[in-house]
Amino acid sequence: MRRVYVNEEWCLGCHLCEYYCAFAATNGTDMARALRDTKINARIKIEENDQISFAVSCRHCTEPYCVKGCLTGALTIADGIILIDREKCIGCYTCILSCPYGAISPSEDGAVQKCELCARTAGEAPMCVKGCPNEAIVFEERG
């Protein structure tokens, strides 16, 4: 399965991936209109200090703690992609506590949010990958 991988060697810490992620979630066509005067809450997040930076998003683990721990069955795996059913999520945050990567976060409406590999873009590279100026995030098959 193709996944999002991070080449931290080339990450510039420009945070563009976060903005492309937030833009993808709005379903809009123009980033300026979609994100102006908003505070974004992206599903991918840059971790950084003075020396290094890299993007963190859901690893889509094959045996994920988050799915195992989900009380309501809101988190499921379909074709290797871990999806969230926002209707079923009760906001207990068990998944947030159990994710070893910190890749799940609360959203504004109470349900949790996570990277679903831009499931809507069907097969194409997710927006964060497309928006990365330095190939620091890639979408590829790695055994």
Binding site: Y19, M31, R36
Partner: peptide
């Protein structure tokens, strides 16, 4: 300013 979303990429780069 109608198009700027204050993402700060200009500042960081």
């Amino acid at each position: 300013y109608d198009r700027c979303i204050a993402c700060r990429v200009c500042e960081r780069q």
